[in-house]
Design a protein around this nucleic acid. Structure first.
Length: 323
RNA sequence: CGCGGAGUAGAGCAGUUGGUAGCUUGUCGGGCUCAUAACCCGGAGGUCGCGUGGUUCGAGUCCCGCCUCCGCAA
């Protein structure tokens, strides 16, 4: 049987499982991998190859890292490959028309949401941020607009309360991998056809910024917990203790029925007030009117290492308030 | 040379104008209690990151050099 020839375009960790699955499946032949240029990272500004590039090199797949999409160089490189599919996954750049319209090559995208919901750059984060019960992945055809083309297939995933961004991202990436391996052949055979999206229901996500991690302690604890889960590990949810930033790495909501102290006592506390409850843990009073409680699990003060809430609480005074 | 914070008992912190270290927690022993992540009593545990460095009668505390960790920025 003729192998399915494809060019894979992806950059971050999320795009690794699908590529790995395609590389391990004999039905596919990955002709080339396109990834974003390597960037300097870390305190020492070391240049780190992208996760997708690393995997590709381990399998001796040629890697292209074009600086520009529109100068024709990439198009020329791809044109000679005679691929059946151009498959992108978290590539991070919008592809110009001349690449999407390569002859006899279907340009597809793996997107981490149930389109038309959450088009754009940060679908996983926004699903967590909004406290959605479900999200998923979509396999779709690329067209001139962002995440706008016909959808071939989707897989759903339940979001559990324990999922932070890395867990959800990994779960979705695995789902995307499974979907790519099983559904690309079905597209070739004609078993799957693209269905136009319900565009009027589309929503869009943008890349998170550093400031998106700042916590408003007047929000209720549930909202704040969602922010913590969505922004971990970057940009990270944070408040301020004095003039120092305090990152909240892990936290969860305490259901009102589990409160050991009565609401009237909480009512008297300012939003952001830290509550040291002996061995029971460290809590923050949240909410504007109705008080709600957020239990901190893991935090990190600016300049210090990350600590469990227990260790952190040993070093702070009573009555301190986060802002 | 990007900016900045920090290295003190197992852990988290304090240590004022320099006078040989203290708190919380944990740990060990004992006690109390129907019981407790409760309470009471007692003990162990630190060459204060490194330098056979400098200043000083005397340095965790000031000066110099080095190492390590971390936040910001990228």
């Amino acid at each position: 049987m003729k192998k399915i020839r494809l060019v894979y375009m992806g950059t971050p960790e999320f795009a690794v499982p699908p590529l790995a699955a395609l590389l391990n499946d004999p039905a596919f032949e990955v002709l080339a991998v396109v990834s974003q240029p390597d960037k300097a990272q870390g305190r020492r500004k070391e240049v780190i190859p992208t996760p997708v590039k690393t995997l590709a090199l381990q399998h001796n797949i040629p890697v292209l890292q074009p600086l520009k999409m529109r100068d024709g160089v990439l198009r020329e490189a791809l044109r000679g490959l005679d691929a059946d599919f151009l498959l992108t996954c978290a590539f991070g750049r919008i592809l110009p028309d001349d690449i999407l319209s390569l002859p006899k090559c279907e340009a597809l995208n793996l997107h981490a949401s149930l389109l038309p919901k959450y088009r754009g750059a940060a679908p996983i984060q926004f699903a967590l941020l909004n406290g959605d019960a479900y999200t998923g992945v979509s396999l779709m055809r690329m067209d001139a607009e962002l995440d706008h083309g016909a959808v071939f297939s989707q897989r759903e995933l339940k979001i559990s309360d324990e999922m932070y961004y890395p867990e959800l991202s990994a779960a979705l990436a695995n789902l995307a991998a499974e979907m790519a391996v099983t559904d690309l052949p079905r597209i070739i055979s004609g078993a799957l056809s693209g269905v136009e999206q319900a565009h009027e229901q589309a929503s869009f996500t943008r890349l998170l910024k550093k400031e998106d991690g700042q916590i408003n302690w007047h929000s209720d604890a549930k909202t704040i917990a969602q922010l913590v889960r969505a922004t971990y590990p970057w940009p990270g949810a944070y408040g301020y203790l004095g003039d120092k930033r305090l990152k909240i790495h892990r936290a969860h909501v305490i259901a009102p029925e589990l409160w050991t102290s009565v609401p009237s006592e909480l009512q008297a506390l300012a939003a952001g007030a830290l509550i040291k409850a002996k061995k029971q843990g460290l809590f923050v009073r949240c909410g504007a009117g109705e008080p709600s409680l957020l239990q901190l699990e893991e935090v990190q003060l600016e300049g210090a290492k990350r600590l469990t809430a227990k260790d952190f609480s040993l070093g702070i005074k009573d009555g301190e308030v986060l802002s």
